[in-house]
Design a protein around this nucleic acid. Structure first.
Lengths: 188, 188
DNA sequence: TTGATAGGGCAGCCTTGTTGACTTTCCAAG
DNA sequence: CTTGGAAAGTCAACAAGGCTGCCCTATCAA
């Protein structure tokens, strides 16, 4: 069950980083850091009467424009109703546009409007600024370790999602598993 | 404002880890990892009709038995009213005991009961198991980097708190800033 | 034509956060 | 011994954002 262990010079001598106390420190670090991590966007969101849920939606729509409601649901891990409430306000406020799917007209493809993109940049720049400072402070090696531990902490399915999303941004490709493009001889 | 930068062989050549894309990856890693991080305790809590707020309270009371409501408030970063609601149910359910402060009888010092300690162990063991697996998987060097980045991400005051809490557990010392113990000739 | 799927709407519930106003307890200083 | 103020707690009201359950429409695929 445990994945292959590949630790340089560690034949049982140096397992001190696995003590309960070290783990507790890591747990508390996660708690405090996550609070800081969300603090800056939260300030901006509050003044606009949005919440974290809006931020998350906007983030992932920006990262993968044209994704469907169902995909977004899967990424966020919430219920349709929960997401819908958020999405409705974003669409009403003209931050997000919902277009009928090309491939399947039942689907809705989500895009940021220019207004939405502006908010997204404002939010993500605030968040990135903190992350950038932390990265710079800790250095590239630490950053690699940081990412490694976070990935190892994810559920396998989430990790797969996370890794798959890695290289999307360039040209918004069709999902790999797409049907061979039927000649949709649709009426209407 | 930026702390002294000490990065080995980096004279502007290798700043690629600071690109917006790398930062975005880090941001998403935080989001997904935090969700996993809370998932295991959440399952246990749900079956007992508690929430994350209860977990956090129990965690910090366990880590620093006898701390006052005000200190706990400061650590958790929520309002008195919010914490109170949670604390009340924990006390009613006899997981937490609230004793009148020795130093200042207005204060309430918080302790886990045996029942509370059992729940705490159950929750934290679930959380530690995941953390342990991630740590083991990533190795000690990565863990060091992980902690470094998380610390760098915290607000300075939070970081100070976090670091101060480091070595408490052993002998539950009086707060360093305590008054020189007046002979409290109290009636009653 | 029909069953399954994508999306959305509505109702209602819960937890956990918030403010604001108020009381009680009780220490410490005048 | 009185009193100001800190610590703790209470009540009321509200909001965000989770959840479930149920129902409806549009659309696709067989």
């Amino acid at each position: 069950m445990q994945q292959k262990i590949r630790m340089p010079g560690m034949i049982g001598e140096d397992l001190l980083f696995l003590t309960d106390d070290q783990l507790r420190r890591g747990i508390e670090a996660m708690f405090f850091a996550y609070r800081a991590f969300t603090a800056d966007p939260d300030l901006i969101l509050a003044e606009l009467d949005y919440g974290r849920a809006h931020h998350r939606a906007v983030h992932f729509i920006n990262r993968d424009p044209g994704l469907t409601v169902t995909s977004l649901l899967a990424v966020l891990g919430v219920t349709k109703q929960s997401l819908n409430r958020v999405l409705r306000t974003l669409i009403e406020d003209e931050l997000v546009e919902s277009r009928v799917g090309r491939r399947d007209r039942r689907e809705r493809q989500l895009y940021l409007t220019e207004k939405g993109a502006i908010l997204e940049r404002r939010l993500s720049e605030a968040q990135r600024a903190r992350m950038r400072a932390a990265y710079r402070n800790a250095g590239p090696q630490a950053v690699a370790g940081f990412r490694q531990v976070l990935e190892a902490m994810m559920d396998p399915e989430t990790r797969a999602q996370y890794q798959a999303l890695k290289d999307l941004p360039e040209d918004r490709k069709e999902p790999a598993n797409e049907q061979p493009r039927r000649t949709y001889s649709d009426r209407r």
